[in-house]
Design a protein around this nucleic acid. Structure first.
Lengths: 187, 187, 187, 187
DNA sequence: GATGAATGAGATTTCATTCAT
DNA sequence: CATGAATGAAATCTCATTCAT
């Protein structure tokens, strides 16, 4: 019923399956079951759909993060965070990368900060709280480190899922090292 | 004079300026100053140029890494590495991401490992050597952590240079945190 | 308030600014501040607005012609007529031509005669009266010459205002020649 | 063989038959027997073909004018000129008007002067020569009057052929009046 | 009467690819 | 090897028109 949402859903499907390059507006409208011209009522180009897609994906991840027990240890929180982001990268395959690319190409880069901020904020709060308990190196700038950690997790997940073809068991080994490295990093 | 190299140079210029999506073979040949048909003597598609571009970029970074004093402390080595990768990201803007995207779209993903491996290898050796001196947590898998570190540095640099518009002074602050986090992480 | 008039006004604005070809019904309704469907309550196509536009323009010119003193000499009348038509062409720029084009394209050509007839009639009466006073060559068919004169004035004005970029002073020189030529022609 | 010429010829055919508004680039390439993309190698839009069409039409008229005996009387020259322009307007139906419209819409108005100038030049020379023989009012500016005459002839022809539905015999009557009026005008 | 979201046929436009030179 | 005009399939984009509200 909501044409805009149907466009977004169709775009996600097709970007995931075929990549942005090979996806056309014609494909999107066909998948969405709407008329050709209707697309242009909501988006000027196929890349202009990206911010909407990104918002949706980040919202999904954020929701999962919010379900983590606030009283858990920082180790448990980070472990959960790693699992959620890895799972997300795995599910959405190249979507994360495509969102980056889509953004930078549409020059709507400024929106990125805003859209991604809930994730940064969650890690930031975890770190800050842990710093107040002396569980984490107080000299680190929690805001900056939150971004570093999110980046490290995502880039590692991407290396695993997009560029590697190691067996699944390997994944756990990488996660162990990543968790250890991050906890070390926070001290 | 060397047509192939001129195609690569032109492609880099245009991918950086307009993104892969909007760059066409027609643009590339025009920028390269060669005939339309000549492109096909060297590359089958515009995405097939990506591996050549990636190789060139990685070679540049690797060369700089090799100039770092082998006897420096791990702190100095990591500091240098951060500076080199940040500078590279800044210079090449979105090229790193585009290389990822380009690769995943051409299904030549396997080449990525091979091309990027000199960078991983350099960090790997630094860590391993430090582990043998007990400077670094021996329980970490040096091969895995090398990738985590490269990923963390690159993603942080991207956040800074692509998605942020903070003043330059901010960059140093982020680098400080990143270095501290990584050194913590290794120990 | 009167939707029909708002459509006509908007159409004039846009036809003048962008030409008929590039003006769309969507543009017109937007300019008129009415809904898309409302246009069709008053006109079947965008060209069907032309007769209404023409009528309005001719009425304006005719009104000015009627204000000329009936007892003036034929020289004064022709001078006034030239000034009015020049001023009209200047104001409405290409509208005259567009009206022609619009008409011929809609096959509503027959209306043209009817709409333009007040202008022809005015000149016709001036000539006929002058012929009865022996001020004008009695062998000329007043009806035909009226059209020739209107045509000559308009085409000259168009050449000046649409296709020339001479300074204003030039205009007076052309008008002098035109008046002299017409008065010669009549006698 | 010459694709550009084939585009021009096809465009003339179709503009004459259906008007500019209803003619599409698709029609033109089909009529010209060339590929869709080929059109864009030569013209950016369908209106950009107009100057080329105008040039061709003016060249045809000019050629006929040049065949008029240089030693003929001014009456004979003007009579011939009227016949040629009437015949041209009759043959090309609305093309003259369409050229105007096409021009003004493409903002290539400046070219008009240049393209039309051979016709003006011909009349100019006729008048000037006649002025030197005292056959024509020496106070008239030959350059200006040349344009007035061309304009008067064309607009009268257009009124006849485009907007009137009088029987053919009428045409001769109008021509008589036009010639008489012009000769009077020149004195 | 008035609205304006939706339509989809059909227009414009692009661009990878070919091939005779 | 190199060229670049030509191609035409396929993309984007437009816009007159409809119709449920």
């Amino acid at each position: 019923m909501d044409k805009k949402q149907r466009i977004i859903d169709a775009a996600i499907q097709l970007y995931l399956k075929n990549g942005i390059e090979k996806t056309t507006i014609s494909h999107i409208v066909k998948e969405a079951g709407i008329a050709q011209g209707t697309f242009y009522l909501y988006f000027p180009t196929k890349l202009a759909v990206m911010p909407a897609i990104a918002e949706q994906m980040v919202a999904t991840v954020h929701e999962k993060l919010m379900q983590i027990d606030r009283n858990a240890t920082i180790r448990e929180k980070m472990l959960n965070c790693i699992n959620i982001l890895f799972s997300n990268t795995n599910t959405y395959q190249e979507l994360t990368k495509l969102i980056y690319t889509g953004f930078t190409q549409t020059e709507e880069v400024k929106q990125w900060e805003k859209i991604y901020s809930p994730l940064y904020a969650w890690v930031f709060e975890v770190i800050e709280e842990a710093q107040s308990n002396d569980e984490v190196d107080g000299k680190l700038d929690a805001k900056v480190v939150a971004r570093i950690i999110i980046g490290a997790i995502e880039s590692t997940a991407e290396q695993i899922y997009l560029f590697d073809d190691s067996p699944i068991t390997q994944v756990e080994h990488v996660k162990d090292n990543l968790l250890r490295f991050i906890l070390n990093g926070l001290n």
